[in-house]
């Protein structure tokens, strides 16, 4: 005799027990109602959803703000090692003339017009001038700027003069990033912050006055009766219009200068004797060195050109990965 109960017997037993279990007549309806009540969010639920979305947005905004701020703070330290940082003016106020005693660019001044310029003298390893020029271009573009002028000499005395324009708020970042380029030696550095707020205000006032004068002359011109009066007033209108155009041009120039700061970068190569690192290598080692530096330069180029977009994309990919693979695992673990 088997010591196990027969499967058919067991199945019949349980079926008979189950048959005697009365099923609630409206149990299924209650279950459906329960689901409907749960998936129909009330006002409080919607408020929680909105609050969650706002919280996530705030976190993302904080990250977006913190990254450039952290980069800026680190850049100041790097710049101070190469050259003393400019002394900040009290309250970021105006400073007469230019020079390194100008206002600290890192201090925001409401409505202030600051024209920033700077020079940077960098020395790069032998035979890496072209790479360095590309890196400088990458830094400018990565910060939302552009190359306004570039002259490169690949002769025996390889040098390059590049003038980049970057948004004034990222001027310090530009200097820091250029200082931090690999294998670059900073030979000299200068920054110039010129507060043109008063000058800008004066120009605006002059423009308003000149415009009013021109408009008045136009009224007079429209009422002139004789040929002589017309010619006389017309000459004055022309002169006044020229003055308006000149003032407007100077204002526009200040606007551009205050929007994009100018940084003149001079690159020079070390002599071959000063670059034993490269020439002392064997063929295979040199190839490895070239490959390594080529890879890093490409990565730097990508990072410089992508800016915050790359960070956002990486964050989004991580989020998608979590939703696609980790969340189902966690979810299944919950049930």
């Amino acid at each position: 005799m088997s010591d196990l109960i027969d499967e058919a017997v067991l199945e019949d037993l349980i079926a008979r027990i189950a048959e005697d279990v009365p099923v609630p007549a409206r149990g299924a309806e209650y279950a459906v109602d329960n689901i409907v009540n749960t998936i129909t969010p009330g006002r409080a639920d919607r408020a929680r959803v909105v609050a969650s979305v706002l919280a996530v947005a705030a976190v993302l905004a904080g990250i977006a703000l913190a990254v450039p701020m952290l980069a800026g703070s680190s850049s100041s330290k790097s710049a101070s090692t190469a050259a003393p940082a400019p002394a900040p003016a009290p309250n970021g106020g105006t400073a007469p003339g230019g020079g390194r005693s100008g206002p600290d660019p890192s201090l925001p001044v409401d409505g202030a017009k600051i024209v920033k310029t700077g020079t940077l003298d960098l020395q790069v390893p032998h035979a890496t001038l072209r790479l360095a020029v590309n890196r400088v271009s990458g830094v400018a573009v990565g910060l939302g700027g552009y190359i306004s002028d570039s002259k490169t000499n690949f002769g025996s005395d390889a040098t390059a003069q590049i003038t980049i324009r970057v948004p004034v708020a990222k001027f310090e970042n530009a200097i820091t990033q250029l200082d931090a380029l690999p294998d670059v030696k900073v030979l000299g550095e200068s920054e110039n912050g010129n507060d043109v707020t008063n000058q800008y205000a004066d120009l605006k006032a002059q423009l308003a006055a000149a415009t009013s004068e021109r408009d008045a002359l136009l009224v007079v011109l429209s009422r002139a009766q004789s040929i002589g009066d017309i010619l006389s007033v017309r000459d004055r209108v022309t002169t006044s219009q020229a003055e308006v155009n000149q003032l407007q041009g100077r204002i526009n120039l200040l606007d551009r200068q205050a929007t994009f700061s100018s940084l003149a970068v001079t690159l020079s190569e070390r002599t071959a004797s000063g670059a034993p690192v490269v020439h002392g290598r064997s063929g295979l080692a040199k190839a490895w060195w070239d490959a390594r530096h080529g890879f890093t330069s490409v990565v730097e180029w990508l990072l410089a050109r992508s800016g915050a977009a790359l960070i956002i994309v990486l964050f989004a990919l991580a989020l998608l990965f979590g939703i696609r693979y980790l969340y189902p695992i966690v979810r299944r673990g919950l049930v």
Partner: peptide, 24 residues
């Protein structure tokens, strides 16, 4: 529901368990 009753041994608990299960 009947499966839940057989497991829980209690109709009230079984009904709640089924509701929870369907909701999840």
């Amino acid at each position: 529901y009947r499966t839940a009753v057989l497991i829980c041994g209690n109709p009230a608990d079984a009904e709640e368990a089924v509701q929870d299960a369907f909701l999840r």
